[in-house]
Design a protein around this nucleic acid. Structure first.
Lengths: 246, 246
DNA sequence: GCGAACCTTTGACCCAGATCAAATCTAGGT
DNA sequence: ACCTAGATTTGATCTGGGTCAAAGGTTCGC
């Protein structure tokens, strides 16, 4: 068992149905995990972990969405992570998390009672390795998001968010006709604003603008159709007026 | 060897002089590392890793500072990480980094030829564990920085940056009289701006404002004295006019 | 069907920070 | 000492997005 691990969503032979813990089904390791896993459900808006809590478990999203949020004393908030199905939360080996985890839609998580860090490294090395890889992925994502937060315009920020959601969501579901991508936004305008470092009014305005400019289609408030992610990101760059100079 | 690892800067008994790889000096593991370590120096401005490069090594900063930067096609840049002494760079198990690493001051790094991920987990489990812990710390730091980028004002951003630099730097050096913290900024105004998602002009203006308001003292452009980190963060909140309403 | 509690959209106005431009202030180098 | 290339400061002006405010839309429960 020395090959590179490639743990993808929904490995069939594994009783736990997503990549988070399916370490290409190393039997012994899985058994160890089986013994300590359990499921928990949360309603939209319910708090999964309060900042400052002792983390009693490591969890992985099965369905629904949760958000990782940091808050300042004066109430300003910044979402610092979106937890989509197969994503991980938790910090084995640390007692406090510095942010809240709140269910953004109805949510099911697969939880594992916290194990001492060292014993995990020893008993389930492939899981440990996968955990490290996933943490590195999250770090990459966080850093990419720093670029979005620090340097992109409101319009570009929206486009970036739509891409993130769309890529994750659409890959699981079907895509629309003519290669277009169709998905439902699982976030309110306010949640989008929290993630993007904007106000909800600006988010709403920019969504309307993108629709008006034909970059995206909107049915209702949540159902989104985009031509392609490349075009979305491109056209979001060209600020508005796609032909108003006459 | 089952106790919690607490790897701090400058462990004496370890031939490698910082926490990055000093896994409380597990002899066998250190020996393994000894065999593959070497030092490299870089001048200010020199590129350590280009985005898209295959990472040939894992490195740890010995002295100097490097920055991790992401760039957009149109030239906008966002620094996504500051590498201070004892910090780590590198992504074992991945072929490309998505950002440049550039020396911001003269820099010495301790490098390790890249090892296959799996063999590292097996051969040096304490180092692997330490690597995971450090990655989680970086993730925390990145997320905290997302709050700074997304929600803080220019003045607050500067204060946050001064705290980060000051805490790291001052802990190694001496502090000034009366509990004040004294340190040298290792960054140009432009580098600060890149980190904070601001322009260099705004950084300069806010530095001047903080000095004018007596929140910080400046000798030359780089030598900074702050009363305390708490006061710095507090007073940065109260926007300017510390008594102008009469 | 009717509120009530939310979301969401839109408008009017304002301001923090960007942009453009010009001095100053270094630190080398010759 | 003088010159040059950066780094830094400061000023004037502009603007993207925030703030405040007021209307729609939806989706409940009753």
């Amino acid at each position: 068992m020395n090959e590179t691990l490639d743990l993808t969503v929904g490995c069939d032979s594994c009783p736990i149905k997503h990549r988070a813990v399916c370490a290409r089904c190393d039997a012994d390791e899985l058994e160890t995990l089986e013994g300590i896993k359990y499921y928990r459900s949360f309603e939209a808006g319910q708090t999964v972990i309060w900042s400052g809590d002792r983390m009693e478990f490591v969890g992985s999203v099965v369905s629904g969405i949760a958000s990782l949020t940091q808050t300042m004393e004066d109430g300003r908030t910044q979402m610092v992570g979106l937890l989509l199905p197969s994503d991980f939360v938790g910090r084995p080996g640390r007692e406090t998390a510095s942010y809240d985890v709140v269910a953004t839609t109805d949510l099911v998580m697969c939880c594992f009672r916290r194990k001492p860090f060292e014993s995990m490294m020893a008993e389930t090395p492939h899981v440990a390795q996968r955990l490290l890889e996933m943490t590195l992925d999250e770090l990459d994502a966080a850093r990419e998001w720093m670029l979005v937060l620090g340097r992109k315009t409101a319009r570009e920020k929206i486009a970036s968010l739509l891409c993130i959601i769309g890529r994750r969501d659409a890959s699981l579901k079907l895509e629309g006709v003519g290669g277009k991508i169709v998905f439902d936004l699982p976030l309110t305008r306010e949640a989008m604003a929290d993630y993007l470092g904007l106000t909800l009014e600006t988010v709403s305005r920019q969504m309307s603008a993108l629709k008006r400019d034909g970059v995206i289609e909107l049915e209702g408030k949540r159902h989104v159709t985009v031509p392609s992610f490349e075009r979305l990101l491109d056209e979001a760059g060209d600020d508005a007026d796609g032909g108003m100079m006459a």
